[in-house]
């Protein structure tokens, strides 16, 4: 179980705002790591900097033993580090199946001329992609919706589809940005199950989340961020009892009153 993802001294400034201020994070193979923190702690920025949507001001990112600092987002994805988005970011007018087919295009690997001339190898690859897409939808439990336009699906189904788009290629690692935001408790427990199922299929996961309870139930390790720095790191049980974390979340007065 080696280190799969490592961020070293990661900094990202937006003008005078220090969204990330010298952050070190590691994720080991096969883990589910939760990244929590109050609003503005730099959680989403961390993912955006790792996948280089915003290049880091300073610091390095290593993935699978090689440095990926500064390589474009689509190259990061090609190396097997995928991400899902905070909002239900999908292709609204595409069918559910087409959303996943788009995600699988990396694996289809046919070129322009094969598609133009409708060669047998093109048809074979296309069939394979369709099969994989259907399997992905099946494991996300949204197979019945495959022909529906994605923007007409329910919020919960869109969320599952969004995650499916991220994991369709069975990547080595996926970064999930708030997969449980704005869901009701039942949906949260469904997503929790889904995330576990993805990990059990061999994908390492890092989750940014606001919802504490599912994170503590789900994660092997939790990293707490505040103002762009790491506040604490440890098992869910350790984090729950951490004095600093309680102070940050409840405020100094809150913790003083508790004593």
């Amino acid at each position: 179980m080696g280190v799969l993802l490592e961020a070293r001294g990661l900094k990202r400034y937006f003008g005078g705002v220090r969204a990330l201020d010298g952050l070190d994070v590691t994720v080991n193979e096969g883990e589910i790591v939760g990244i929590i923190g109050p609003n503005g702690a730099g959680k989403s920025t961390l993912f955006n900097v790792i996948t280089n949507v915003f290049p880091p001001t300073a610091g390095q990112v290593f993935y699978n033993g090689e440095e990926i600092t500064g390589i474009p987002p689509h190259e990061v994805a090609r190396k097997g580090l995928m991400r899902t988005f905070q909002r239900n970011l999908l292709y609204p007018p595409f069918s559910v199946l087409d959303n996943v087919r788009m995600a699988l295009h990396l694996k289809s690997g046919y070129n322009f001329f094969e598609a133009l001339f409708n060669t047998p190898s093109y048809r074979r690859k296309e069939e394979l992609v369709d099969k994989q897409a259907l399997a992905t939808l099946g494991s996300a439990d949204i197979l019945a919706l495959k022909d529906r336009i994605s923007s007409f699906c329910s919020f919960g189904a869109q969320r599952r589809l969004g995650i499916s788009v991220g994991v369709a290629t069975q990547p080595k690692m996926v970064l999930m940005d708030e997969p449980m935001a704005a869901l009701n408790p039942e949906q949260v427990s469904n997503i929790t199950k889904f995330v576990r199922q993805i990990r059990d299929a061999g994908t390492t996961i890092a989750i940014v989340e606001h919802n504490m309870r599912p994170i503590f139930a789900l994660c092997d390790r939790v990293v707490v961020l505040a103002q762009g720095r790491k506040l604490a790191e440890g098992t869910p049980a350790e984090i729950r009892d951490n004095e600093l974390v309680i102070q940050t979340y409840l405020g100094r007065h809150g913790s003083a009153a508790a004593h």
């Binding site: 996948t51 949507v53 994805a77 788009m102 990396l106 290629t169």
Partner: peptide
């Protein structure tokens, strides 16, 4: 943004 994230 999503296309980029899936490797396009």
């Amino acid at each position: 943004d999503l296309s980029e994230a899936v490797g396009l």
